[in-house]
Amino acid sequence: MNKSDIISNLARAYTQVSNEVIEKFVNIFVQQLADAMSKGKRVELRGFGAFSVRRRDSRVGRNPRTGAQVEVGQKHVPFFRMGKPLQQRMNAKTH
């Protein structure tokens, strides 16, 4: 499922709202998540999970092709941790 699937599914469920507005709505959602994380903020969506930004310290890595050592600088990466209700729901059916 991708963003356009989400938009068309929402459009089917909310026939009173125009497609343009629904598309805008979904884009705002994604943009809000991205903006918050860009500022290093945490986004918590109860029942789903939490997005945060984690720091990765600098380290010495290797060029996989040549084997040469290279310094990899400190960086910040987006991180998602799934929420407990989702974890439980996902694993309920398998047992």
């Binding site: 994380m37 997005f51 960086k75 910040h76």
Partner: peptide, 15 residues
């Protein structure tokens, strides 16, 4: 969750 390159870039620069 696999962040896109665009998102990675943004979180890295501003933080």
């Amino acid at each position: 969750f696999r962040p896109s390159h665009i998102l990675r870039m943004h979180t890295n620069i501003s933080t």
